[in-house]
Structure formats: C-alpha cells, structure tokens
Design a binder for these strands. Structure first.
Lengths: 249, 249
DNA sequence: ACAGGACATTGACCCAAATCAAGATGACTA
DNA sequence: TAGTCATCTTGATTTGGGTCAATGTCCTGT
C-alpha cells in the first residue's frame, strides 16, 4: 500500500529492472543498496521441480518473479496438503531459520529472484522499513491462511473450487492494479492434483466439480489450464463468502 | 528464544510484575519504557464473552495473561470456523489496522494485558527489537496456521481430536519449560462446540471421537474439561504427525 | 435436596466426497 | 503416423462424518 520505494516485494511494476514486479531486488534499489547487488541471483525451475525439500538447508530467501509454487506438508502415510501458494511478488523463506520447514515445488515454470540469507538478515536488522514491510507481508499471509482455514474446515467441494478460482482471479488482477469483474479469464497453472492438495480434496472430486460448475454455466473450460468466467460475481456467490475483498487489497 | 529482556511477549515467567508471563507489559520493561506505563491496562472477560466483533473498531493490542480465546470467522449462512487460538503469552491485534478482521471470543475466563494501538505502533517504529520480536511471533503463528491447514485438509476426525490435545499439552508444557511425556493431564477450556469449530467438525462428532479414544484407552475423562493422557507418546501417534515438535519450540 | 438449563452423549439415518476402476484426451517421441 | 505416458474425466460403490432426535449429566441457584 505504500507508494514510495519499498525494498521488499510490492505489487508495483518495476520500470528499471528485468524483473517485472518490484521484489527483493537489489537492482531496483541499487541507488541505496548498491552493496547488495552481488548478493542477488536468479533461479529458474520447471513445472514439478522442487525448490527445496522440507528439512533441507536453505541458505537463501527469494521473491517470485513469475510462475507459481506451492508449499507442501505431508503426513507419514503420504497424505499431502498444500500450505502455501506462491504467486508473483510473494516472498519465500523464513529469516532466522536456515532449515526449510516445508517442501516447495514449482507448479508451473518458475523464476525466483534470490538473496543470500545472511546479508538479507543483516539488511533486516539495519533497515526498519525493510523489517516493517516484511512484517506487513507476513501478516497478510497470515490473513490469507485464515481464510484458507475457513475454506478447508467449512466449505463444500463446489465452494472450494469456486473459491480457488476467485483467489487466482483476484491475485492476477491485483498485479495489474485492477479489480476482477464481468467476463474474465483465469489461468490455472496447477494440475488437478495440485488443486486437490490445495483444497483438501481428491483429484477426482476436483475434476467432477469443475464439470459440475461447467454444466451450471458458472465457468467454461478452454483447454485444461484456462478457465473462462462469464460472470465474476456469479463465481463469488458460488464461493460462499460474499465479502467483496475490499478495495484492491 | 532470546534470553535477554524481550519487550513483546515471551514465555518466560516475569518476576516483578502481577502478570505471570512476560507480555506486552510496560511494567516488566519500566526501566527502559517508563513512558508507556500509563498506556497499559487490563481487561477481564468471562467465558463466552466477545472481546471484539469482526469489523468493529479495535483501538488496542493485547497479550493474553491467562485463559483462552478464539478468533472466529463465519460464512453468511452461519457456518463457523475458528481461525486462531489464543493462549497465555499470545498476541492479539494487528498493528496498522484499526478494524478487527475476526471476532474474538473468550472460551474460558480471560485476562488481557492491553496497550493502546497508536503508542504501540510508535514503539514498533522506534524499537527495532520490538518489531523483530513481533515478526518472529507472527512467523510462528503462520507456521501454526500451516499445521492447522494440514489438520483440516487431511486428518480424520479421530486424528483431529488427538492433534488438538497434543497442541494443548505442548503449549501448556512450554509455559512451564517442560516437554510433555508419560502420563499427563490436559485441561480443556473449550466446549465441545468450540472444539468442533477449531477442528472443522460438528460437536456430535467431537463427542463421539472423544468417547472412541476413551474406549481405546488413549485418554481418560475427568469431568468434561479435563483429560488424562496415560501415554503422551500414544496420543502423538493417534494425532497422525509423528514429528516430535523439536526442543521446546 | 431439588429444579432448571446449559452442555454433552448416544442412536438412527443420510449424503457428500473418497475409493476403486475404466476410459478419454492430449502432448511428445520414435 | 502411430505409440507411449501423463493427465484428466466419468462411473460404480463405499464410507466417514453430518443431520436430526432423544436422552444423560452436571453445575447453579433457590
């Protein structure tokens, strides 16, 4: 929400940088943070590839430039639940912890802008505005996790699917500083299985409910990874929570 | 985990203060924060009483001194999901936001140590260590929310109940700087309905699974609000996740 | 000690989503 | 062009937990 230069990721497009969105990106901030320029590096992952495994050492933090990744947690017997969804401008990594708590998997081709952890933590200690921005982002993530709790605990399969589409549509629109309404197209860089892991369902149920929503005219499918929503309002109603999300938060 | 004086809540008992645990408590920090002394005040709530309603104005932040409270979210049709569980030493309120996002209800008698929001935000801006501690706490809360996602998305009713008991036992032990093992007693300051809202179940299912666990010898009931666990290890196995939680995190 | 009310347990039945099992689609390779 | 493999859809069946409906239990106040 701050309009002046934020050092941690914001959703503002960045003019002077190969990265499309302002992120943890020394380049964007080179005037004040030139000394960090050489700490920045990029990593590219293909769909399905792991960024880190839970309990692996993780010596960097990162910001998503493009693509999508999921944080995933597992029970011994293999039951899997996604516990975080990383979209462009999202932050990855926990300062102060060098061991990954979750497995991070690219669900589509993924580009990360990375920083070594140690200098990042130093930055955090020395720059109150950086720390403040990270706190803000963490609180937003906590709010998102709480909406997700409501989704997992109390929504029907149909509502869950609709909710996921609403979330993706809102996130996509937010990057373009727009508000989704009317007829929109949502790209779905997730397999049915990844959707199931996000929603606490099986992939069969996801597939069935997608078909149901299609038959009900709420969505149209353009291939498997692209959804056309004739009326965003109707989709929001299907999602159960009628809160309109506020002004482009 | 820092052993030196932390300004935001820690789990360390406080020697020179009526509050049992170090919390957002000017008293504990009066040597360096004397000017905030008059900003501190206490509030007491009875079981069932609301601290704030979602969308109400909230002009304070607080730390739980004793008792338990739940953050709760609702769908239009009344379906309710608890999205936060506040135990002693937990922090309540979002700096930078003056409107409550969730309804906060005392599930047992509750004592809060409160601070007016404005001076607290000033403190946050001026004291990097306070901000750092709050970031730390928020990240811990996010981790807890992610375990909760796994619970809601993938665990059976029986595992959910066992998991809740494990969480309560661990939290209670952590305040006493112990690690739960062997035969322990867990106090349960929640109605069956509150447990259901936490776990994404109905109160009938909660009741049934409590009975099942009792019949299986995993727990014994001492009244309705007190559970005896003959073997904590056995309970952890019932909870599904075998991770032993690490050293008193 | 008793009555009332909130909270909890138990039972019978039902349904949404899981499970098991074929097929269909579509992208890539030989 | 055909073949292979991953992904997705659809169908048949099962089941865990929800719903509805009685009881039971334990505080609290009189």
């Amino acid at each position: 929400m701050t309009t002046d230069a934020a050092i941690i990721a914001t959703q503002a497009p960045c003019e002077n940088c190969p990265i499309r969105y302002r992120a943890v990106c020394a380049h964007c901030e080179s005037e004040e943070l030139g000394e960090l320029e050489d700490m920045k590096f990029y990593r590219r992952y293909e769909a399905g590839q792991n960024v880190v495994w839970a309990a692996d050492r993780m010596d960097f933090v990162a910001s998503v430039v493009s693509g999508m990744a999921g944080l995933t947690q597992q029970l011994e017997d293999g039951r899997t639940q996604m516990v975080g969804l990383l979209l462009p401008s999202d932050f990855l990594g926990r300062p102060g912890r060098d061991v990954a708590a979750y497995t991070v998997t690219a669900t589509s081709d993924l580009l990360l802008c990375c920083f070594r952890r140690k200098p990042f933590e130093k930055l955090l200690r020395e720059r109150p505005r950086v720390a403040g921005r990270l706190l803000e982002m963490t609180l937003d993530e906590l709010d998102a996790a709480r909406d997700w709790l409501l989704l997992l605990g109390r929504k029907s399969a149909r509502e869950k699917i609709a909710s996921l589409l609403v979330i993706l549509a809102r996130r996509e629109a937010a990057l373009l500083r727009r508000r989704p309404e009317g007829r929109i197209v949502v790209s779905l860089p997730l397999t049915r299985e990844a959707m199931a892991d996000y929603l606490g369902l099986t992939l069969e149920t996801v597939s069935r409910q997608m078909s149901t929503l299609k038959r009900a005219g709420v969505i149209e499918l353009d291939g498997k990874r692209r959804v056309i929503v004739p009326s965003f309002g109707a989709l929001v109603i299907e999602s159960g929570d009628d809160s309109d999300g506020g002004p482009l938060s």
